[in-house]
Nucleic acid binder design. Structure first.
Lengths: 113, 113
DNA sequence: CATCGATATCGACGGCCGTCTATGGTGACG
DNA sequence: CGTCACCATAGACGGCCGTCGATATCGATG
């Protein structure tokens, strides 16, 4: 608007702020990217609804309507993101939510720094 | 584990639940997909930090380190997702957060149905 | 030991996404 | 009225992602 240096014009920049660091942005984006998929959201909802001691893969394949390798793939993504955990028993695999994980993400989105 | 019908085996399915509807899953996934990008998170953080009357595009280009059309692209994605809004003034464009948008997303992630 | 069922991994294919350069449209200024 | 700054759009290119069929592993069963 007025006293700038050499720049031809500056609309204005009233703010300063730590500016979200690259590492934090990438980390949060990674977690959100794991969440941003319809089938994975359905999986999480299912695990949240009926997760006393876990849900096995065979109980997820039919409701989702996708092939079993795809279900395993999505579970792997959620597991690498730290959102779910696996408990192996015989030849079955029972998946459960990692307790505070979703709430932590929600808190990060809700906070207004 | 034992008394099934004709299926050769059923690990067990103790739970029932409405099961997240396709439309809801797709909608939430769409919003999360808009959030799941480092540069867009930085934009939102910036808007949240210093957003009394908005931030113009020129103030976002340099901190992000990407070309101006890319910034416009990201702002468009956030706007179509209903997360930010635009206010045009002269040749400038001031972007602000849509008030309750982020909190709504956080609430959806935090609720345990 | 041979078989079968439950999962995970592999390789391939199609589509979406983030980035860029180039260009267009609009308001201010001289 | 010509010029310039700000912003948006269009088109192209490379890479990541979701899906599948095929295959491997591992435990239980007979």
């Amino acid at each position: 608007m007025e006293p700038a240096a050499s720049a031809p014009l500056a609309c204005r920049t009233p703010l300063t702020a730590p500016a979200l660091a690259d590492a934090e942005a990438a980390a949060l984006a990674g977690t959100l990217k794991a969440l941003a998929e319809p089938n994975r959201l359905k999986i999480l909802h299912r695990l949240a609804s009926a997760a006393p001691d876990g849900v096995c893969v065979c109980d997820l394949t039919d409701p989702l309507g996708i092939a079993q390798p795809s279900v395993s793939h999505h579970l792997g993504v959620l597991r690498r993101a730290g959102l779910v955990q696996r408990r192996r028993e015989a030849s079955f695999a029972y998946y459960t939510l990692v307790p505070g994980a979703l709430d932590r993400v929600a808190a990060l989105l809700g906070e207004r720094p």
